[in-house]
Write a protein that binds this DNA or RNA. Structure first.
Lengths: 343, 343
DNA sequence: AACGTTTCCGGTATCGTTACCGGAAATATT
DNA sequence: AATATTTCCGGTAACGATACCGGAAACGTT
């Protein structure tokens, strides 16, 4: 029947009231007769009235929407997005997600597009391609709030929620050392990416602590990609400095490494150890199951969401919170060579 | 410096023109002096003018945004969403994704929320909980276009893009039969879900074709969930009708089944065969690697997007396209018992 | 020269909502 | 009883854009 959704105007006409009165009734209730209010609310209910969010946003210059920009939607990030989602839902915000597909260009386009009055601000994890931060400086200039998470933007002050990646790298490496592995290689990510370097730093720190000389021939930079990791591992395994353990800074890379190891016919964990990063659920299902560094993804997302909303509601553009959460090492078969002593 | 983004009004004032003229210049260029137009476009460029999409949408009653409602963002669905994304991008549309988390309540809320002038229409895959279609009937009444994909909505006419699920079930089952498995169990999904039943139908069809009596004790309905599948399989394996093959209608369930099989100590594929559904990438990495029915997820999404956009642009609410795409069986170790004869 | 036709531009209403102001009626105060 | 104060409501102007109408100038036509 009714083709168009009811508006405040429809309600006003039906009740022979002005739209101002109806508007008041539907909002804060000040300056209005309880009786009138009741009848308005009743009719609104009957008509299934829903305020037009476009008009609202246009009028109030506020959309109650958060733009989330992520490089992809893999396991970790989609879990983080669920965290953001939850924080947003609790505060009555809507979330719009855009994948940059690890492409700088799409990141810029998406930002600009959303900026067109579609969102109140952003929660961002940059693409691995992103080196410039020009498109984000615009945000600061226009005083548009944003929070970064997971991967931070270099040289840009902003609130951030990230993992202690150095600690993650340290935990993984020290664990391998304690298991008696001597020549531990690291499959690092793209050199441009902060998380990549931090995990490498943790690796170095653990090596240093245990008086193992750092050997940069055991460091391989490659994309966050199973295939790249596969080839990189093949190369490592056939070099004369053949490592007896590999720390891959993502699970995808760990899987690639594992395939190369299997192809080579090496026994895991006896001849070679392996630790990944992120603790994707499927790792437990492999044979051998793969150890990995777990991060509190959901919490990271939820915190990022909360901080964003808090700063937005308080119009707080100056104070910058920096939250760093701790990772946890999940030990499985791929890296356990020693039988535990005692109980 | 400039705190607010420039508007058409700013341009008009700077050039001592009316906003009408500026608006015309920025749109179709009819009724305007080329010179004036040029200067307007120039200034717009300099100011980095971007039209306010809220105002535009409000005025034109059109948002150029598609609301996508999905039960979750697993591998298959997120691939489909990427397909929708691509179709949308090509046509200048934006996509908003909402997960219902397999919950009927959130599905209703999300639909209502987006309906508030946020989207021009919907592309939907229903949650497994959804039985009623009331919240979608509203769409038909209000003549809001929508296309369903993956999982269709029962008793509701609409354009749809789905997989030939019966064919998928048939392919998997016939393959197991041809491999000499005799007692083939099926881990079916929730009985409420169409895709679940279609795949079961395919299973039955294959059984019938090969003159194998259908035994409903070999049918287990359970959630799309690894744990449920694990327990269901344990039960199957310890029953006196112990099957010698399992067809799981999702890969997650297949993995659950595999864990139960390993726990029981059965050899795969010798003692028991296994086929999954969806062909998630990780299946190739298990030991043994798991066979699965692959669906053209990206194409399904892209087609759904294209059909939506086409019907929307043509204001076509009556014609309903129903596209059914064919699955493909990917055979791996988990189900191959016979050595191929010939070549 | 008087008229009709283009060409080009400005004014105004509108989309649905809220913010602000002002005013009539009802009530309270002196 | 006159005045002050609430209480409650309506009118109007925005938010940023487009659509429609109408009108002045410039041009073409007879």
């Amino acid at each position: 029947m009714h083709n168009k959704p009811p508006t405040i105007k429809d309600i006003a006409q039906r009740l022979h009231l002005s739209i101002s009165t109806v508007s008041r009734a539907l909002r804060n209730a000040s300056d209005i007769n309880p009786e009138t209010k009741k009848s308005i609310l009743q009719l609104a209910e009957d008509l299934n009235y829903q305020p037009n969010r476009l008009a609202l946003s246009l009028r109030q210059n506020q959309t109650n929407t958060i733009g989330v920009i992520v490089p992809n939607l893999d396991y970790v990030i989609s879990t983080m997005v669920k965290g953001i989602d939850e924080a947003a839902l609790e505060a009555g915000f809507t979330v719009i997600v855009c994948q940059s597909n690890e492409s700088f260009g799409r990141e810029v386009v998406n930002t600009r597009r959303m900026l067109n009055s579609l969102v109140d601000g952003f929660i961002i994890s940059i693409s691995s391609e992103t080196k410039s931060n020009e498109h984000f400086k615009v945000l600061s200039e226009r005083k548009i709030p944003f929070v970064v998470f997971d991967r931070v933007i270099p040289d840009l002050v902003a609130s951030s929620v990230i993992l202690d990646n150095e600690e993650g790298g340290f935990l993984a490496t020290e664990h391998l050392i304690e298991q008696g592995y001597k020549k531990i290689a690291i499959l690092a990510g793209p050199q441009t990416l902060g998380i990549s370097n931090s995990r490498l730093d943790g690796y170095k720190k653990a090596m240093k602590k245990h008086d193992i000389r750092f050997d940069d021939e055991l460091v391989t930079y490659c994309d966050f990609n199973q295939d790249f990791a596969f080839y990189a591992t093949e190369e490592l395994l056939s070099s004369k400095k053949r490592p007896d353990a590999i720390f891959a800074i993502s699970d995808r890379m760990a899987i690639g490494a594992m395939l190369a190891i299997k192809k080579k016919g090496l026994k895991m964990p006896e001849e070679i150890g392996l630790v990944g990063f992120n603790n994707e659920p499927s790792l437990a299902l492999f044979n051998p199951s793969i150890s990995s560094v777990e991060q509190p993804s959901f919490e990271i997302g939820k915190l990022a969401g909360k901080i964003f909303i808090e700063q937005f509601l308080n119009n707080d553009f100056s104070s910058h919170k920096e939250v760093i959460l701790k990772p946890k090492l999940v030990i499985r078969e791929s890296s356990v060579r020693l039988t535990r002593k005692g109980n």
